[in-house]
């Protein structure tokens, strides 16, 4: 097809022109994503400037005093709330998620595998507000009436444990789906090679499959953590939302996302309040970024000996 003459690449054939324009388009798309991330960071930094200029960043991060009406904007208990609920969720979710993914992929028949995968897909697609509601009607009473009394403790049920439980149920499918993807990527011939030597399934899984899958499983857990850190709706509904550092899992927490979602748009007549909320969003974003960059560096430096090229 001849090129219309108004296109300023007269010397180029149509094929080359398409090639160049496709490349440019992809480049713009790639840059655009980075531009958005950058602009969010800049925008949050600028918008939160009033509060961190006046109170200093360490002062905000390390103070526990949250009393906006009197100018107390300490974020410490919110940061701890986020870290603890995420940690608890991952500790509860990762082992069963990884084990059941291995079961489905390495042991179960194709039929069960397909059924299981469909089920997890569905689970992964449930909106978080539904998880939150489910948390209120089942998890909170369970914690209040059964789990806490077993330890001789009185609680409303709106606490760190409920928050961790609901979050863990939410991230189990996320971790499972990714672990299954990772296991899919390991060539079957490696399993055959190990089995052919007389190894049992378990020996093959332990020495060959897990060794190959290790970096990928790490990424899967990381994805679960990223999901849990930023989860807002479900957390807000069951965490109790009291800005204090909890002394046990039966006490309420107030994770950062819940803080932002609960308060933004209200009480903005208080000086520096909206700036402080912007700052908390910046802290949340920084936590996720630092975590992901750290993981990336860890995976690059850790050596996985003898991988097939």
């Amino acid at each position: 097809m001849p090129l219309p003459s108004f296109i300023p690449f007269k010397g180029l054939s149509a094929g080359k022109f398409k090639n160049i324009s496709a490349r440019t388009l992809f480049l713009i798309a790639a840059l655009f994503i980075n531009f958005i991330l950058l602009s969010i960071i800049i925008w949050l930094t600028v918008k939160s400037a009033p509060v961190w200029v006046e109170k200093s960043i360490p002062g905000l991060l390390l103070s526990q005093v949250w009393f906006p009406a009197r100018g107390g904007f300490g974020m410490f208990s919110f940061i701890i709330g986020t870290v603890l609920s995420t940690l608890l969720a991952v500790i509860l979710a990762a082992p069963p998620a990884i084990l059941s993914a291995i079961y489905l992929h390495e042991y179960a028949s194709k039929k069960i595998m397909t059924a299981g995968r469909t089920l997890i897909d569905l689970l992964a697609g449930i909106p978080s507000v539904v998880f939150g509601l489910w948390g209120i009607i089942t998890v909170v009473p369970l914690v209040r009436n059964h789990i806490a009394p077993a330890f001789g403790i009185n609680t409303t049920g709106y606490c760190l444990l409920s928050c961790g439980l609901v979050l863990s149920i939410m991230i189990v499918p996320v971790i499972m789906l990714m672990v299954i993807e990772v296991l899919d990527g390991i060539p079957n011939e490696l399993r055959e090679s190990s089995l052919a030597l007389g190894a049992t399934r378990w020996q093959t899984v332990k020495h060959v499959v897990m060794r190959m899958a290790y970096p990928g499983i790490l990424s899967a857990v990381a994805l679960g953590i990223s999901r849990a850190i930023g989860e807002t709706m479900a957390v807000l509904m069951v965490a109790g939302n009291v800005p204090a550092v909890p002394s046990s899992v039966f006490e309420p927490v107030y994770p950062l996302p819940a803080l932002i979602a609960n308060n933004y748009g209200e009480m903005l007549s208080i000086p520096l309040y909206d700036s402080a909320l912007m700052f908390s969003a910046l802290v949340l974003l920084a936590m996720v970024l630092v975590f992901n960059i750290g993981l990336h560096i860890f995976k690059k430096t850790a050596r996985y000996g003898g991988q097939t090229s």
Partner: peptide, 18 residues
């Protein structure tokens, strides 16, 4: 049974180790 038979595949698949 499998221990009685060594297996070579179409492509070599060394295990992920030394």
């Amino acid at each position: 049974i499998r221990k009685k038979m060594g297996l070579l595949l179409q492509k070599p698949y060394p295990l992920p180790m030394s």
